[in-house]
Design a protein around this nucleic acid. Structure first.
Lengths: 333, 333
DNA sequence: TGCGCCGATGATAGCGCTTGCATAAGCTCG
DNA sequence: CGAGCTTATGCAAGCGCTATCATCGGCGCA
């Protein structure tokens, strides 16, 4: 019975066992087709025998390509990105990438630290859904790492942007609610840039359509289920009760519905509510929640495709990738 | 004005700029106190001037320590671990570790791949909340990576376990509900091992206390908000309506409450509901949800402390770390 | 004054892999 | 049948760090 050396086996161990050079084993590991079938078979066997696990630190150092992607999001709990991120992580993993997760919160310095950490690890790409501050372009541009902003389409993206127009999303919602006959919308948004753009889009369109004044309130980022309580209390104090509340996330919409119902109101008859993001709960709530769907899996796929192309040396598309959105009319409005 | 070389600066660049050897710069980067104050200052300046970002692939390769920790969980959306994982990621990041996130789903092969990927990256530790299959011990034991199972206390953990007794959690809940006067509990659990243990603990204690029969149903992993609908429908078809439903997660409890209320039942008067995990929504729902609190942040801290000690060569505690749990009585039962 | 020590630094040998270049067969074809 | 390819493999030079060992001034102390 073969002695198992007590150190973890390296390429060389596999090589000598298979009777080839370590270069050949390396080739086999990274691209099996380039070695002859018979050799491949011997190497495969040798790998299994010694229980070889490649050292990606060494590989990454040598190739300056890490097969690792950083995903930066503000939060995990109740995050509007959850479904998108779950899709993202699944797609990245099955695409052979390792995911480095960073939680930025709302702090720019935290975001910066995480970006530095990612660059330190020579990640192939950084996918960020958080806010971008002014120091980031300089950091990123000196590296070969691809920077991808998701969920928005900034005028001048750092690297690549994959998202949709928040302004259009806002105005689409305005048209929808107007056509449904609502007249006194109340907006509740997290105080982030994107939510602000949606709000502007809504208000502008609403007024263009001849709608009256639009009231609005702000909640902390992220807009969570738990905010529902305070938001509802605030609404009750409004001089005139709105007939529909436009929420910055489905979770907030859910929280608001719960509160409204607890207060004896019927949704949507007494108060209609719409969310944003088409999180899984939106279709499962009672009443089901009218919302905007964003195709997270599509964003993930586009991101991965871009990373691949970029890795192979192709130029990036010189314009952001617009994945659009889709209004989903359900029971709540 | 100084020319910025178009390649990314290395330790050597910093060293020559500061007029010291690269070894000294390395010392400064990893442990500033060991270099003389004046030298430190020069190095600090040089680092800022050239915009040096350490290459952790190279560092990790040389030191065989990656400062990276893999976190493996089944899901992101509606996961009972969300709050724990958020705490975990925050604590790890501020502790200087990079987090590699893996979503195992319910597949053992997926879990295996992720563990291999983690080992390939020479992570300092793998923190797993998923199910452990028989092939894992062999994989992990040949490496120097610390394996940490969280949220449970298995008899024979692979590496270290940090969690609590699911059996005790089950029996505590049984005692609590009995003392509150409930008589016909119905259990709804995800079909995972841990949930099964809690159920057994509940049933056994319930019967010890002289309670009658306990009905139970199973849902897919993870037990989510959306399951509430089917679970409620099933309950209605039970020969005798339960007076309290014990759910495997707060999200499921929430979903069930929503359904019950939509059907005109009052919670807890007509049907009481309890959850598990003390997710943030539990205290924010109407009614607030009675649940079991598990201190996720404590688990995270214990894990990090263990990783640190292990990295410094200390032996692991030879017994699992029991962080306990706490029943939180709220309005829903 | 001289010995031993300690704190600060330099020189250097790898860590385990990738990859450009060189080599050696096998093929095709006029 | 040999020039000119293509294909399969080996050789060896790094990738950018860390860590061991050696060096070299002080400095306390007998």
């Amino acid at each position: 019975m073969a002695e198992i050396p007590d150190k973890v086996p390296t390429l060389d161990d596999v090589a000598s066992r298979a009777g080839v050079s370590s270069a050949t084993v390396s080739r086999f590991v990274n691209n099996p087709k380039v070695v002859a079938a018979a050799t491949a078979e011997r190497i495969r066997a040798a790998i299994a025998e010694v229980g070889y696990i490649p050292n990606l630190l060494a590989g990454g150092l040598a190739s300056s390509r890490s097969k690792m992607v950083a995903v930066l999001i503000p939060h995990l709990v109740d995050s509007i990105f959850n479904d998108t991120i779950e899709a993202m992580v699944e797609e990245l993993s099955s695409g052979g990438f390792t995911v480095m997760l960073g939680l930025t919160g709302v702090s720019a310095s935290r975001t910066n630290e995480l970006i530095r950490a990612a660059l330190s690890r020579k990640v192939d790409a950084i996918i960020s859904s958080g806010p971008i501050d002014a120091t980031i372009p300089a950091l990123v541009s000196r590296s070969t790492t691809l920077f991808i902003q998701i969920w928005e389409l900034p005028e001048h993206p750092v690297g690549l942007a994959i998202g949709f127009s928040h302004r259009d999303a806002g105005s689409d919602m305005a048209r929808f609610l107007m056509s449904r006959g609502y007249r006194r919308p109340h907006l509740v948004t997290a105080d982030g840039a994107r939510a602000g753009v949606r709000r502007d889009g809504f208000v502008e369109e609403w007024q263009t359509l001849g709608g009256g004044n639009v009231t609005h309130a702000t909640v902390d980022i992220p807009s969570r289920f738990g905010h529902g309580r305070r938001v509802f209390a605030d609404i009750r104090r409004l001089p005139e009760m709105p007939d529909v509340v436009v929420c910055g996330s489905d979770y907030l919409a859910q929280g608001l519905i719960v509160e409204a119902q607890a207060a004896g109101l019927r949704v949507p008859e007494d108060l209609a509510v719409v969310g944003f993001g088409n999180s899984s709960i939106a279709g499962e709530m009672r009443p089901t929640i009218t919302t905007m769907d964003v195709d997270g899996r599509r964003i993930a796929r586009e991101a991965i495709a871009a990373i691949r192309r970029y890795g192979e040396g192709s130029a990036l598309p010189d314009h952001p990738i617009d994945v659009g959105f889709r209004l989903i009319a359900r029971e709540s409005a």
